[in-house]
Nucleic acid binder design. Structure first.
Length: 319
RNA sequence: GCCAAGAGGU
């Protein structure tokens, strides 16, 4: 079971639908499962299907469950929400027999990410129990729909706040052009850890304020790949390719996002050969759609149509 | 033991 469970989790992470189905069949064959163990595995499979975008498969599995628990309901709800089936989500939500705070919070988030803040707010107001996650999710929904003032008002009214809540509010301001609000909130944040620092570095970088970005970066005990990439993007945006490259080469680890940022920097500053060399150094299984796109962009910036065509042909196609 | 909230790339 632990074996099966961890394999299913891997499918979720890797978005491996075929493998998930394979394990699904395997689970159906094993006959000595206790009811709650079966539900447990089914929930993991539901999540995997949802994350692979297979709403129909998730629904089929759910309907076959003899005894779905509230987790099963919530996971299917999340799958609908994540895949844009707002109406199905709502009708499922209305049928959940014992909704818990997670059910409510998931439904609110679904409305929020569809831009339906009035519906989100209504649910938020009538729900029986709200917790920190509910409040934070609602603040984030306001922020993402551009309602920064409402986000702040709700944030200020929260009965308690943790670091995540503060960080969401900080990120909300960093999306606006109010650097002063970002800094004011950052000055009051209870703890400056890597996420909040990265947001502020990103806010400085986006505005070309590299002196301040660098100062904060240097004051950190250690950044992670996100922090480094935010700074690199800032230098690249200012046209300081040397500093961007030097940081890129010194950063402790690189991922698809940092690769893409650097390729895009090379592309924008007219260094096609370096963009291409970097692209070629990326392991094939790490090249996601945005990485490919950045290479396409590099060729297009260079006016190299042949390179674009070559890239398009080499790109893996979804079948 | 399985579900909901936080930062960087097109």
């Amino acid at each position: 079971f632990t074996q099966l469970a961890s394999e299913i989790r891997q499918c979720s992470d890797a978005r491996d639908f075929d493998r998930a189905r394979q394990i699904h069949r395997q689970v159906l064959k094993s006959k000595h499962l206790r009811q709650d163990d079966a539900t447990y595995l089914a929930n993991l499979l539901l999540e995997a299907y949802g994350r692979c975008g297979s709403v129909e498969e998730a629904q089929r599995l759910f309907q076959a469950l003899p005894l779905p628990n509230v987790f099963s309901w919530n996971i299917l709800l999340e799958a609908y929400a994540q895949n844009g089936h707002l109406d199905r989500a709502r009708s499922l939500f209305d049928r959940i027999p014992d909704k818990n705070v997670v059910s409510w919070t998931t439904m609110i988030k679904a409305y929020g990410s569809s831009g339906l803040m009035d519906d989100a707010k209504l649910l938020f107001e009538i729900m029986p129990v709200r917790n920190l996650v509910t409040f934070t999710g609602m603040v984030k929904a306001y922020a993402e729909t551009g309602h920064t003032l409402d986000a702040r008002e709700l944030f200020d009214s929260m009965p308690e706040r943790n670091l995540v809540a503060w960080t969401v509010m900080l990120a909300a301001y960093s999306q606006t052009w109010h650097l002063d609000e970002v800094l004011a909130l950052f000055a009051r944040i209870p703890e400056r850890e890597v996420v909040s620092c990265s947001i502020v570095i990103g806010a400085y970088s986006a505005r070309g304020r590299m002196r301040e970005a660098r100062e904060l970066f240097d004051s950190m005990r250690e950044g992670n790949v996100v922090t480094w990439t935010a700074l690199i993007a800032g230098y690249a945006g200012r046209g300081d390719l040397e500093e961007a490259r030097s940081l890129f080469e010194r950063m402790p680890e690189r991922d698809t996002v940092s690769w893409t940022s650097m390729i895009t920097a090379y592309a924008q500053l007219g260094h096609l050969e370096e963009a291409r060399a970097l692209f070629d150094s990326i392991p094939i299984d790490r090249r996601d759609a945005v990485v490919w796109n950045s290479m396409l962009y590099a060729f297009s910036r260079d006016g190299c149509v042949a390179g674009m065509i070559e890239t398009l042909r080499a790109m893996p196609r979804p079948d």
